[in-house]
């Protein structure tokens, strides 16, 4: 599909989502430039995950629009978004537990290459799918676990696999929902490093929802702080760090 590179990779316009009285996302307008790593921070309930859900069309907005390279993708089914290059990972790990790690990746790679439409070709003989899957295993240091069932793999690796699936899709924009939550402190840095390496290497744009401030300030180009469904502040990590309001709202996390 044709992509208009003069447009921002992601833009939201007036996104709103109310759950009854609760204004989960309240008129959010943001822009993301190609190649940047943008972090979204905020206390629990500020609407970060809901925002990701709206952008990735996990739920429908009450009003507002989402633009991907200038195209209105607000109502597109997630499978179509994924094919266009907009993918997301999940806060609560969302894998194909009954399949091996390798099968998880092969499914994503096969989907990305458009091969899943073929009911008669032999998956095991498909060299390209195998090669790409092995490559991603290698990047994310999951090679040893390839033949283990995804449900049996330790939690940190499961989080990484969740993200690896996104990269298997050759994405242009990746939405990461708390990629290091539930990961032990000693593992956080390596996990994040694997992600950052992949992002820089593949030139992917990333929007990361995170609670861990070290991660946020260590890896982002830009930070957005949310509060009660609205954007409170945005700017470079250093600016946000110094921002009075942000410090007050996000107390205890800095």
């Amino acid at each position: 599909m044709a992509i208009d590179k003069s447009e921002k990779i992601l833009r939201t316009e007036g996104l709103k989502k109310y759950f009854g009285e609760v204004k989960a996302v309240d008129d959010v307008n943001l822009e993301v430039s190609e190649g940047e790593i943008l972090s979204i921070i905020g206390p629990n309930g500020s609407g970060k995950t809901t925002l990701l859900n709206l952008i990735s069309n996990m739920i429908e907005p009450d009003s507002g629009k989402v633009f991907f390279y200038g195209r209105n993708v607000t109502k597109w089914p997630p499978s179509k978004l994924a094919k266009m290059g907009l993918v997301r990972s999940f806060q609560i790990v969302n894998l194909f537990d009954g399949m091996t790690v390798m099968e998880n990746l092969k499914a994503a790679v096969a989907s990305n290459l458009g091969r899943t439409h073929r009911p008669f070709s032999n998956l095991n003989k498909d060299e390209e799918i195998t090669r790409r899957s092995l490559e991603i295993l290698r990047i994310f240091k999951l090679s040893e676990k390839a033949e283990t069932l995804a449900g049996d793999v330790p939690h940190g690796d499961r989080k990484v696999l969740d993200v690896a699936l996104c990269f298997a899709l050759n994405p242009k924009l990746i939405l990461l929902d708390e990629p290091t939550s539930g990961v032990s402190t000693s593992e956080k840095k390596p996990v994040m490093q694997r992600i950052e390496e992949a992002v820089r290497k593949e030139g992917v744009t990333a929007v990361i929802v995170e609670h861990d401030m070290d991660i946020v300030f260590g890896y982002s180009n830009r930070v957005i702080a949310m509060h009660e469904g609205k954007i409170l502040a945005e700017g470079k990590p250093e600016e946000i760090k110094e921002n009075e309001q942000v410090r007050k709202i996000v107390t205890g996390e800095i």
């Binding site: 009954g98 099968e103 499914a107 096969a110 070709s121």
Partner: peptide, 13 residues
């Protein structure tokens, strides 16, 4: 086939 794997994925999640 890749289609078969996709079906498995659909079943799983």
């Amino acid at each position: 086939s890749p289609f078969g794997l996709a079906l498995k994925a659909i079943r799983e999640n």
